[in-house]
Each structure stands twice: as C-alpha cells, then as structure tokens.
Design a protein around this nucleic acid. Structure first.
Lengths: 193, 193
DNA sequence: CCAGTTATGGACCGATCGGTCAACAACCGC
DNA sequence: GCGGTTGTTGACCGATCGGTCCATAACTGG
C-alpha cells in the first residue's frame, strides 16, 4: 500500500562502504555518497539515518561478513594449522586498499567511542575464533601443547594486522607475500614428528 | 628591521602535530589549529603555508625525529639483538595514540600521493636501519648467518606495526606487552651457544 | 624618532558541509 | 480508479569549511 523502494539495500550499503573505504569517513561527503549509491540525500536518510549511522551500518556488516568468512576458512581447513597459515597469508592480500575495519579504527578509534567499541569487540571475536583453531591445532599435534591459545592468537592477529598495514603503506605485493611467508615459517613451523 | 615572531616554530609545529594526531587530517579544521597553536590564521599561513603544507611539515619532522631516535637506540645498544628487541617492544608503548606516521598513512595513503610517497620512503629508511642492525647481530653471533637482513627487517617492521595497530585498537597495555614479548621470544630467540 | 619591514589577528569570502523539507511519484488495498 | 501511504528528488537551510586580506602592532637600521 505504498511506493516500493527502487534500490537493493545490500547494493547501496556495498557502494557506500566502498566510498568510505576509499576516502575515509571524514573526507567522504554526503554528495560523495549520493554519487556512489545513485540515491538522493532524502532516500539515504530515510533508509539508513544520518551519515554516522550509515557508516556504522557498513562497518557492522563488514565485521559480520568478515568474521563469518574467517570462521568458515578456519573450520573448513582440514588441519587447523593450515587455517592459521591462511589467516596470516590473507593479511598480505589486501594491498593498498587495506582492511575496512583497520582503516576505520585507525581514523576514528581516538575520537569516536562507538567505533572504538565495535573495533574492540570485533578484534576480540577474531581472537576467539583463532584461539579455538589454535586449540584444534594443538589437539592435532601441529602446535605444542604448552602454548596459551588466546595469547598466541593475539600474536597471530598482530602479525596479520602488521601485514595489512604494510600493504596499505605501499609495500609491493611480492615483498608483502615474502613477509607473510616469513611469519608463517617463524610462527607456525612445520611440526617435527 | 621588522617585527619579530612571537612564537617558537618548534612549539607551534608540535602543537599542530598533536592536533592532527588526535583528530586526523580531514577532521582537523583550521580553527582547531589556531586554538591548538594560539596563532591566528594569517600567522599560520605566513609561516607554514596552507593546511596541507603545514601537515606535511609536521609529518616530515616526525619521520626525521623518529628515524634519528631509532638509529640512536639501535646503535647505542651494546648487542645489536637487544636493539632489535627494543624495536619490537617499542611498538607496544604507543597505546591508543598510535604512531603519527602510521595513522597518517592509513588515513591518507589511498588518496594523497604525497603522503603515500613519504610513507614509502620512511618505511624503507626504517627497514634499512633495522637491516643494518640485523647484520650486526649476525656478526655478533646472535642471529643465524643465513638470514636475509632486509627481508628479516621487513618482518620485524611488520610485527612492530601490528603491535602499534593493536594498541590503537584499544588492546589493554598488559596484553599488548604480552604480545610484544611473544614476538621477541619467537622472532629473536636467545641464541644457543 | 622616523621610515621601512614583517608579524599579527580577525573580519570577511565563496564554497561546501551535513541535514531538512515539501512537492511530487509510485505503488497497494479496496 | 481512487485514497492512503511511502519513496524520491532536489531546492534550500544555517553552519562551518579552507583561505584571503588588510588595518594595526612591533620591531630595526639609520
């Protein structure tokens, strides 16, 4: 009994996210968002609220999707340690685009408590996913039993974020991959049996 | 034969840098800069040029000072491997403030070629400083001779940047230190003699 | 103490910011 | 096909943006 929307919510959120991703939150104007999405200001406001709400929505969706993808990659790996290797190597794939969550955290964590809170939660979720896989690798005999899974998961996460940052900073893909493989070799050595 | 300046250039640059550091480049207005520095707009423009020039100046100074401090820390360490350990542990000290260069790179490297270029140069300089110290550690017998100094330096740099990012993201100091020490233990193990 | 020069600070500029709103368009149930 | 409801669009708003400019201040050489 009313006019239907002329857009797919997911498409708009993807386009808006890519715009925020490319330029950052503060440097993105509403005009940028209307151009990227094809919607007018009023439609954006009617559907998603103001600029900040819209941004938080894209960030939440990104975190949700990323965590789901990570969980799948970790769980579907035959040996847990291979999932962990993939986790590290994935940090070398983003290149200059970087990670949307990492970029947003760096730009806004210091001034936007809401973003800081989401970042904290997201990183904690990731650590728990990785830690569970570390435990599985221990059960499978690919990692020493003495390791604290959560602490080691944080180390792996820091290594991955380091890779993401070096990619963002323009380190060539070849060298970035080399660093990722070096991390794999030093942090996840093939177990001696 | 003219009116002298009423400010110390270094003081103004420090205050301006801290403002950019706290809020980011795009989110900092000229009014923020005049408030932080105590100077009027005209004085800022007369002394340093426009907002972007002023920002680049603070970034260049930061890089110069940071590299000088790093070089000193690395060179004054009795054993080179201790300097490398300090390099990693330093990544855990910045906490939520983060690193000015890292924050600026993340915010602007994708859209500001000038910043991207400075970031590339700066990280390359740091890698060379660290690589030289890796070579010294090899000569001192604290690191295996087979390691490629530059490649390993990049790994150490990525680890440090990962620590910086996790600190920026709000990881508690205690856990951050734990990760830093874990990196030290896994990447720079006490040599067996 | 005056002439010349530079520094200062804030009024001012056009442009753009995020956000609002009203007129109009498109659809559904009846 | 009509009334009611929601979506769409772009003109419009006050605020703020980065940047300019000028009247005035503060100093030095002569």
């Amino acid at each position: 009994m009313a006019r239907p929307r002329q857009f797919e919510e997911q498409d708009v959120l993807r386009d808006v996210r890519d715009q925020f991703w490319a330029a950052g939150y503060a440097a993105t104007s509403l005009e940028d968002l209307t151009r990227a999405s094809g919607l007018g200001k009023g439609s954006l406001y009617g559907a998603f609220g103001d600029k900040h709400k819209l941004f938080m929505r894209t960030l939440d969706d990104y975190v949700t999707d990323s965590c789901a993808g990570l969980r799948q990659n970790l769980e579907e790996s035959e040996r847990a340690v291979d999932g962990l290797r993939g986790f590290l190597l994935a940090g070398a794939l983003s290149l200059v685009q970087g990670c949307y969550l990492a970029n947003s955290t760096t730009e806004l964590a210091g001034t936007d408590p809401e973003v800081a809170e989401r970042a904290r939660e997201a990183y904690e979720r990731i650590v728990l996913l990785v830690a569970a896989t570390v435990e599985r690798a221990q059960r499978e005999g690919d990692l020493p039993a003495g390791i604290d899974p959560v602490a080691f998961a944080r180390t792996l996460q820091a290594a991955q974020q380091g890779l993401v940052h070096m990619g963002r900073s323009g380190l060539p893909a070849e060298q970035l991959t080399q660093v990722a493989e070096d991390f794999v070799a030093r942090l996840l050595p093939p177990v001696s049996r």
